[in-house]
Write a protein that binds this DNA or RNA. Sequence first.
DNA 1: CGGTATCCCCGTCGATACTG
DNA 2: CAGTATCGACGGGGATACCG
Lengths: 226, 226
Amino acid sequence: MTSDFGQFCPIALASEVLTQKWMLLIIRELNAGSTRFNDIRRGVPRISATLLKQRLNQLEHAGVIIRQPHDNGGDDYLLTEAGRELKSVLAPIGEWGQRWAREIDDGDLDPGWLVWAMHRRLDLSKMPAGRTVLEIAFTDAPKDQRFFWLVCENNNVEVCVKPTGFDVDLRVSTSVRIFAEIWRGLRPLQPEIANGAIRLEGDTNLMRDFPGWLLLSVFAKTKQQR
Amino acid sequence: MTSDFGQFCPIALASEVLTQKWMLLIIRELNAGSTRFNDIRRGVPRISATLLKQRLNQLEHAGVIIRQPHDNGGDDYLLTEAGRELKSVLAPIGEWGQRWAREIDDGDLDPGWLVWAMHRRLDLSKMPAGRTVLEIAFTDAPKDQRFFWLVCENNNVEVCVKPTGFDVDLRVSTSVRIFAEIWRGLRPLQPEIANGAIRLEGDTNLMRDFPGWLLLSVFAKTKQQR
DNA sequence: CGGTATCCCCGTCGATACTG
DNA sequence: CAGTATCGACGGGGATACCG
């Protein structure tokens, strides 16, 4: 799709790049900090490798990113100034989506994506110093997507899909749907802990401070309108 | 394309609607004031009737517009609050396009579209009272797109592709490329009048005030960066 | 004017397998 | 890990004709 709208309106020209399938989500990942091929994929899990590479090439061609060879093979994909300025495009789109977009259905509830989103929204400054290991257990997810682990240390959070070998400091058990609705800001967190829809087990301080360091979606504070 | 990105991120949900082909341009037209099927088409001339209708249906389904039966047949397509809020999405996309999008080529230089864009960007308060008829002559356009007429009166501007029957008050002759570059804010207007790249003939006051009432693109003041 | 109906092509994309 | 190559299916959408 999408090229040659036959007009030189800046919105049309920008659309040639931005409205390609998956493009905004890739740009969102880049602006969230991902630079590596497979990191981007974790934020956009349903895209194929072929297509992601093609989109990255288009972004490079459009001057949104540059490639930089990486030691361990592959490239780093780094935003240019033009790419960083796309934050000002993503923000209002997300706000609008939060206010007006359709309700979500079960097909949108990807547990892995939710954990990947979480890993960028933990306030490490409000967590204990040193290493903290979280286990997320989605009670209603298929077996291979039921458990995830977040290893937090040194201003860095790693997402694992297998046990880490470290002791778990806090286990969070919940259904994907409930947690997603909290994540989106559609329901408050505290009552769901109180009524047991979210179960916390482990370190007492971590449990107590959980609502403090779990930052939720960037758009959680924007009120839904429909 | 575009549905089911498999995640409930608001940017993904908004993308399902907004990144459909032609969609942003249709929304731009609606937000510029068009409500009728063929008015929208004049702002998006390369879209087929079938596809435009399909997109309008999708916008209605997404709650961006509502349809209202019109006396002369067809419907008025009216923005909802959700639709009006998309202004906040269009603006940064246009700004980004103006700053960073590719250079335009000859295929983007649609004279009819340029005149249609112009008709929304005339400051009638700076034009004489009563009716003013402008003739635009694109010296380098194919015969059937060489002449256009703008009939300005009563806070309303009409675009015609055939002589109007009224006397012409001001004739503007220029190449599409030059006028497009001025329109986009890439070069100043006055020198091009002085050096004859834009030729004005007709009412002396209209000629003198031309740079005052020709408002140019909404994004003309945003400086290109590439 | 404001659409619908139909046909059909070509490009997009997913899936799978393979490589350095 | 970070891709590339190939292939085939599907469906988006252009073109054209028609209609109330």
